[in-house]
């Protein structure tokens, strides 16, 4: 056997730290996008529910597009074409913008369903007590509809967190991109992808457990 020059080095403690940092970036981009996307989506869902004709005509097809086109295509298109209209966004900002709109497109449907779930008789009862439209929204529709759609919303949020891995194609070093970098160096894809998977699990599992706890408490 002849000695070969070793270009690769094994997986070390530093690399674990590197992955942990990347996991935080995944968490950060997800929290930002889910929060902004939820607010935007709730607004869109409300507009569509209220049946404002221009909202139905403009919003519904736009949201359909963002719901239907694969996220990776949206990301690449936006990142490469936004500069043409003068938007010079870095990979992180581009990722947040697209993930936010994508989340909003999913949440809009869920939110509309939530308002519908409350039902006209319940809302009339609230209004008959002298509540204004917004008081009814805030104290009756939001808590009742919110609880009805909470499981779906958690599903959307966890999905978006996992889908944030796609922002790696723009070069933002989140969990998946960091794993790819380490795999290139260590040539240990099995180990590193397992660790990355464990990080994703560690991010989503507590959320879904906490959500299940909340649902249990509300169900009483």
């Amino acid at each position: 056997m002849t000695e070969t020059i070793d270009f690769f080095s094994g997986f070390g403690a530093n690399d674990l730290w590197f992955l942990a940092e990347a996991a935080l970036r995944t968490l950060w981009i997800s929290i930002l996008s889910i929060a902004a996307g939820t607010v935007l989506g709730a607004l869109c869902g409300w507009l569509i529910y209220e049946g404002k004709i221009w909202a139905t005509l403009t919003l519904t097809p736009v949201l359909d597009i963002f719901r239907s086109v694969p996220l990776i295509i949206q990301l690449v298109l936006f990142y490469n074409f936004a500069p043409i209209v003068g938007l010079n966004l870095d990979p992180f900002a581009s990722g947040v913008v697209i993930l936010t709109i994508y989340t909003a497109a999913l949440v809009a449907n869920v939110a509309r369903g939530g308002i519908e779930a409350v039902g006209r008789p319940m809302r009339r009862a609230a209004r008959s007590l002298g509540m204004s439209y917004w008081q009814d929204m805030r104290y009756v529709v939001l808590p009742i509809g919110g609880r009805a759609i909470f499981p779906s919303w958690i599903g959307v949020a966890l999905g978006v967190m996992k889908d944030s891995a796609l922002v790696s194609v723009l070069g933002y070093v989140e969990l998946l991109k960091a794993s790819q970098i380490l795999i290139t160096r260590t040539q240990e894809p099995f180990l590193i992808l397992s660790i990355a998977g464990a990080f994703y699990f560690a991010l989503s599992f507590p959320i879904s457990r906490y959500a299940a706890k909340l649902e249990e408490r509300w169900a009483q």
Binding site: M122, I144, W218
Partner: peptide, 10 residues
């Protein structure tokens, strides 16, 4: 008071 009582369930 309505036919369906519409109590706020939460």
């Amino acid at each position: 008071v309505f036919q369906q009582w519409n109590s706020f369930p939460h």
